[in-house]
């Protein structure tokens, strides 16, 4: 377990932790996490995972930085407006920690490419802003046996659930997408920036603790957060035998695209999954 002097110094506060130590830091350096969405959730997750020394971090986004993003997407700066989000995020992560490998992916994840994008990563963070992507990521991760963290935010509220093979998946709780037009978009409903920050960091914490094998993950528990009342509530769940992707009689055998941008910042063509 060799570290350079620079690594020992950089990661000393991690290494000092009994539950991390040199062994844990080596696990982090040898691990890989894919963050899907370099937005409100992905920004804090990307910064903290790079800072912690997760050795390889993929960051997926096909969108460009807009002025209205900067209120919460803290990895992007004013000078980044119009730049590809994945490129902007990768630059900051490399500046923060040149010792980690950052792989920007400027692609829209669809049923046709998601399997190949996620396959080399140990853990996936869903930081997308729409239901079609969330269901696509869930299905691809469940079918591929990939642990992942689901996150969703709106206004002052957030929710997160972690999946590992055998635990309840996102679809065990939410069998189908909400009907089109019934959920306001982030652009319509608003989002307090810190809500994204808090929830994205909880997702990053799940990734770190999964890699380190410490503590208790948010598996079989949906964490619901209300930042108006600063209430955190864990709600118990379990694998649903009728779940179409992980239940006893599976009907979803490969990732599929959905035609319903329910919470995207832009009203794109209905058939597209807007990350």
């Amino acid at each position: 377990m060799d570290f350079t002097e620079e690594q020992v110094e950089r990661y000393s506060r991690n290494i000092l932790l009994d539950d991390v130590g040199g062994t844990g830091q080596r696990k982090l350096l040898d691990s890989s996490v894919l963050i899907i969405g370099a937005g409100g959730l992905g920004s804090p997750a990307a910064l903290y995972l790079a800072a912690a020394g997760v050795g390889t971090i993929g960051i997926v986004d096909d969108d460009h930085v807009e002025l209205s993003n900067l209120q919460r997407q803290v990895i992007h700066f004013t000078s980044d407006i119009s730049r590809p989000k994945a490129e902007s995020a990768a630059e900051k992560m490399r500046l923060l920690n040149p010792g980690v490998t950052v792989i920007p992916v400027m692609e829209r994840l669809m049923a046709g490419n998601i399997v190949s994008v996620i396959k080399d990563y140990d853990f996936i963070i869903d930081g997308t802003d729409n239901f079609p992507s969330k269901f696509l990521i869930n299905d691809a991760c469940v079918l591929g046996g990939k642990p992942f963290s689901h996150g969703g935010i709106l206004r002052f509220y957030g929710q997160t659930l972690t999946y590992v093979p055998g635990s309840a998946c996102y679809r065990c709780l939410f069998q189908t997408l909400p009907p089109r037009g019934t959920v306001p978009s982030c652009g319509e409903a608003g989002i307090l920036g810190v809500v994204a920050g808090i929830l994205g960091m909880i997702q990053a914490s799940e990734a770190l603790r999964y890699i380190l094998g410490i503590g208790e993950l948010l598996t079989n528990r949906l964490l619901y957060m209300d930042q108006l009342t600063v209430e955190f509530r864990k709600l118990n769940t379990k694998p649903n035998p009728n779940c179409p992707v992980c239940g006893e009689n599976r009907t979803i055998l490969e990732p599929v695209d959905y035609e319903q941008p329910a919470c995207s910042l832009k009203e794109g063509p209905a058939a597209k999954v807007n990350l």
Partner: peptide, 10 residues
């Protein structure tokens, strides 16, 4: 009975 709306932003 606890009831939650959909929360899907990111």
């Amino acid at each position: 009975l606890s009831v939650f709306p959909a929360v899907g932003g990111g």
